Amino acid sequence: MKHLIALALCLFIFQTKAQTFKNPKSLFDPSPYGFSHASSVKTPGELVYISGQSGGLGKEHTLNPDFRIQVQTALQNLTTILDSYSLKPENVMKITILIVDHSSEKLKIWEEEISKTWKNKSFPASTLIPVPKLALDGMLIEVDAVAFKSLN
């Protein structure tokens, strides 16, 4: 009986703080740029791997030539997939962002839009990769992700 109580207590403790986002004080603060240096998960659960989401709108995958609109659409597409797992952006542990013809202007737009999606500012670990082209003509951004779903 004591073992069952101890096990239940351990599971409760692990489930209360399943996700951790870290930004060591000796490194620069990445939060204004919409990411954390590292993220981890300490409890049993389900990892959800999300394929690269573009800025294509709807089933027709309509690509607006405006970079900001494609960023907003890509983040909405990501959120739609998260919703299908009953998850929120805060459940994303790692993202990779591919940006065509990356520039400081595009980075600023990305930072503004990710801050609107990650309202609590617990940003995932992140890698941004500038690319010359993506899979389809007109695609300006692609975002993939790994999210965590707790078993509780």
Rank of each mutant, 00 (worst) to 15 (best):
S84N: 06
T127Q: 12
S31F: 03
W110N: 05
S54A: 10
Q19G: 01
I99D: 02
T117S: 15
Y49S: 13
V146F: 02
T80C: 00
S115T: 06
S122W: 00
S51D: 14
H3F: 06
F21C: 08
Y33L: 14
E112F: 05
K108Q: 09
Q19M: 15
H102D: 13
D144V: 02
S104Y: 05
V92I: 04
S40L: 08
L78W: 00
H3N: 12
T73M: 07
D66Y: 04
K2S: 15
L136S: 13
P132I: 03
H61E: 15
Q76V: 07
T80D: 15
S150Y: 07
A145R: 02
Q70L: 03
T43S: 15
T20H: 12
I97Q: 07
I95G: 04
Y85T: 02
Q76N: 13
S150T: 13
I81A: 03
S54N: 10
M93G: 06
F148V: 11
W118V: 03
G138W: 02
I99S: 06
K133Q: 11
L4T: 11
C10I: 12
L82W: 03
K119W: 10
V48K: 10
L136R: 13
I50D: 05
S115E: 11
M93T: 05
V48S: 05
N120Y: 05
T79C: 00
D144A: 12
G58Y: 10
T117M: 15
Y85P: 00
L151F: 12
W110R: 06
A6E: 11
L140S: 07
K25H: 13
K88L: 10
M139L: 09
T80I: 04
P132W: 01
K116E: 14
T117Q: 12
Q76H: 11
A6C: 02
M1H: 12
K94T: 03
E113M: 06
G138C: 01
G34L: 12
E46D: 03
K149R: 14
G52I: 13
S36C: 03
T79A: 10
I129S: 05
E60C: 03
S103T: 06
Q72D: 11
G45V: 08
Y49K: 02
L7D: 09
Q53W: 04
S115H: 13
E46R: 05
K121R: 14
K59R: 14
R68Q: 14
L63R: 12
E46Y: 07
K22D: 15
A38D: 04
L75A: 05
S31V: 01
K94I: 00
T127C: 04
T20W: 04
S26V: 14
A145P: 09
T73P: 01
S84T: 06
H3Q: 11
N64I: 07
E105S: 10
Q72I: 11
M1I: 12
V41M: 13
G138T: 04
K88M: 07
L4M: 11
E113Y: 04
Y33A: 15
S51K: 12
